[in-house]
Nucleic acid binder design. Structure first.
Length: 485
RNA sequence: GGCCCCGUGGUCAAGCGGUUAAGACAUCGCCCUUUCACGGCGGAGACAUGGGUUCGAUUCCCGUCGGGGUCACCA
């Protein structure tokens, strides 16, 4: 069972619509909780409420229970006192914290406590740790394996001045009441395990199993650091939606990082849905992987290359409507767009030239007149760059050779013929063998055509492009190219 | 600083006592090809370091160095 509990016990950090954002973001990646929060104020499941701020009385009841058993106590120390204590400890070069002899309020009598409270003194509730720092505790983590720590001996606060619990306390109470068996969390929590285990013990609860995951890191001027929401755009899930990186790609990339055997599995099961892959906690890396955008985009490229033209169309249109109105407008004519996206797609070796939806416009713009004429600058004619010669080639082609009904073989034979008639090699190999016999080769002649028709030197197959463009457009573009010379 | 985790090519990583130390991305070259992309073939490139243990250490132990985490009335 996957449940979504909202840990909102720090009121300072509340964000408007935060819950809805979390729910929606998860849903964008097909993650829907079996129970817990499903909207800003909605939840499902029978272990609720799933929002911790609504469970205040529950935590307080357990805190009272601990106090009754002398396993917790009220603490009246002020922030200043605590600060002073810390300074002393630092100066004396001993461990900082509220423990042992430093735990001033630990042995306060009940009468004393009642009096202080009656006097209106502020207080919080602390856990009375039974631990000893000179004893070791062993923990078997599902990812990190066996780890050994000194026992916890800190009297950490469990109920704050505002009456809400700290994470540690809420964690033990909730995960017991919600019947949690596995806690999978970031490894910044690893060092809290001794405390948490102790809390479960003293509360009389059975502790869950823990799996501590290494965070994804980022290279920051030669230093590794956790991907940060503040500094790194790619740390936010919204970034992938904005860039148009398909969720399938993000998930595949993450799986690559999570389980290194995923790549092999994928190679052997190209058609299967990733949900069929069995993720193994014990195969997860113990140290944090550096985020690699290049690899992500490569995954994206492969993922998109396997999409049908229709899927590519639907997804790019969906993205365009949100982020690129110009593209959205181009894509209005679905029938034409399908032909464009169909070029060299849905075959055994599909093109891999789109890694995210934000690249689509650049990729297909020349297929649209409104973009083609707008973008067109000075023609980057390459090997053949004599204007008269180019004009000649284009004129000949359009007048003598072009027929939109030709099949691919005929189409290319004609280009070869045209090349031959103007002293260009019909085969590249012939040219390479005897370059002195020719002006250039058929590839160079094709480039002239390609540049005139697309104003680019690199494009997919020209035959297919011309088919999609259609007779009228092809003739119009060639004529316009001739005029421009 | 104390405590804890980690350290195989640029990156992600197999291997866990005897291997020519896999693979993927990136990179370079060649082939295919009318260009590009795809695909195929090949190249360069790694066990942080010093001591042990052992017939033999990338694999086990200790130290050093390096990276990361944590030491809140934040989670």
């Amino acid at each position: 069972m996957f449940f979504l509990r909202i840990e909102d016990t720090d009121q300072k950090r509340e964000i408007e619509n935060g819950i809805q954002d979390i729910v929606s973001s998860l849903k964008d990646f097909d993650l829907e909780p079996d129970e817990g929060m499903i909207g800003e104020n909605e939840e499902k499941g029978i272990y609720g409420p799933y929002k911790q701020s609504l469970r205040k009385e529950i935590y307080q009841s357990y805190a009272k229970y601990l106090i009754e058993q002398a396993k917790a106590y009220p603490c009246f120390c002020t922030a200043e006192e605590l600060e002073e204590m810390r300074k002393k400890q630092e100066d004396a070069k001993i461990r900082t914290g509220y423990y042992g002899v430093w735990a001033k309020c630990r042995n306060i009598t009940v009468e004393e406590a009642i009096n202080k409270i009656k006097n209106g003194e502020q207080y919080i509730i602390r856990f009375k740790s039974p631990g000893r720092e000179d004893r070791k505790i062993k923990h078997k983590d599902l990812i990190k394996g066996n780890v050994e720590f000194p026992e916890n001996d800190q009297d950490i606060v469990i109920i704050k001045a505002d009456g809400l619990p700290t994470y540690h306390f809420a964690h033990s109470v909730d995960d017991h009441l919600m019947r949690t068996t596995h806690v999978i969390r970031g490894d910044e929590w690893l060092s809290s395990v001794p405390l948490h285990l102790q809390l479960f013990q003293e509360l009389g609860f059975k502790a869950p199993k823990y799996a501590h995951i290494a965070p994804i890191m980022k290279n920051d001027n030669g230093n590794k650091r956790k991907l940060s929401k503040r500094k790194d755009a790619e740390a936010a899930v919204s970034y992938y939606e904005e860039e148009g990186i398909p969720k399938e790609a993000v998930k595949e990339y993450l799986l690559n990082i999570a389980n290194s055997n995923f790549e092999n599995w994928r190679r052997q099961n190209q058609e299967k849905d990733i949900s069929e892959f069995e993720l193994m906690l014990n195969k997860m890396s113990v140290s944090g992987a550096l985020f690699d955008m290049t690899k992500l985009l490569d995954v994206g490229k492969t993922v998109i290359s396997r999409f049908t033209a229709k899927k590519v169309y639907d997804e790019s249109k969906k993205w365009a409507k949100r982020h690129d109105q110009e593209l959205a407008k181009l894509l209005e004519d679905e029938e034409y767009a399908l032909k464009v996206f169909g070029i060299e797609r849905e075959n055994k070796k599909p093109r891999k030239d789109i890694s995210k939806w934000s690249e689509v416009k650049e990729n297909i713009s020349y297929m649209y007149d409104e973009m083609f004429y707008k973008e067109k600058q000075d023609y980057p004619y390459q090997v053949i760059n004599n204007k008269e010669e180019i004009k000649n080639i284009l004129n000949l082609y359009i007048e003598k050779y072009y027929n939109e009904l030709d099949d691919k073989q005929t189409w290319f034979d004609k280009i070869k013929e045209l090349s031959g008639s103007l002293e260009y090699a019909k085969e590249v190999k012939e040219f390479k063998a005897n370059p002195e016999l020719y002006k250039a080769h058929v590839g160079d002649v094709s480039t002239v055509l390609r540049v005139a028709l697309t104003s680019r030197t690199n494009t997919p197959d020209m035959y297919e492009i011309m088919k999609v463009l259609g007779k009228e457009t092809v003739e119009k573009r060639i004529k316009s190219a001739i005029e421009a010379l």
